[in-house]
């Protein structure tokens, strides 16, 4: 990856990259984690754990209630965007 800031992947790109590793088929932002990607709740915890490392968000800021609200790929993106926003403010 170059140092060009334009090449820094967006939160959505990083989330998609990580979900691609565990999903058996292509998916979009509105696809459901469980029904479409086949991701049960404990595997979602493992993906979120890795995403916190990749996106440099403190995992200790996450609660079980945050995870209960995650239904779609887009929900994961929005949750991380919100955490990054809170962390930087």
């Amino acid at each position: 990856m170059s140092n060009d800031p334009q090449s820094v992947p967006s939160v959505a790109q990083v989330v998609h990259q990580h979900l691609e590793k565990v999903s058996k088929k292509p998916f979009g932002a509105e696809d459901h984690l469980r029904e479409d990607l086949g991701l049960d709740s404990i595997r979602l915890v493992s993906v979120v754990t890795r995403l916190t490392g990749a996106l440099k968000v403190s995992i200790l800021s996450f609660s079980d209630r945050d995870l209960i609200g995650l239904n779609t790929v887009g929900d994961v993106v929005r949750l991380f965007e919100a955490k990054i926003q809170t962390q930087s403010s």
């Binding site: 915890v45 079980d64 945050d66």
Partner: peptide, 8 residues
């Protein structure tokens, strides 16, 4: 730990 932190 809460479930969200188990792997961490």
């Amino acid at each position: 730990v809460p479930r969200s932190l188990v792997f961490y």
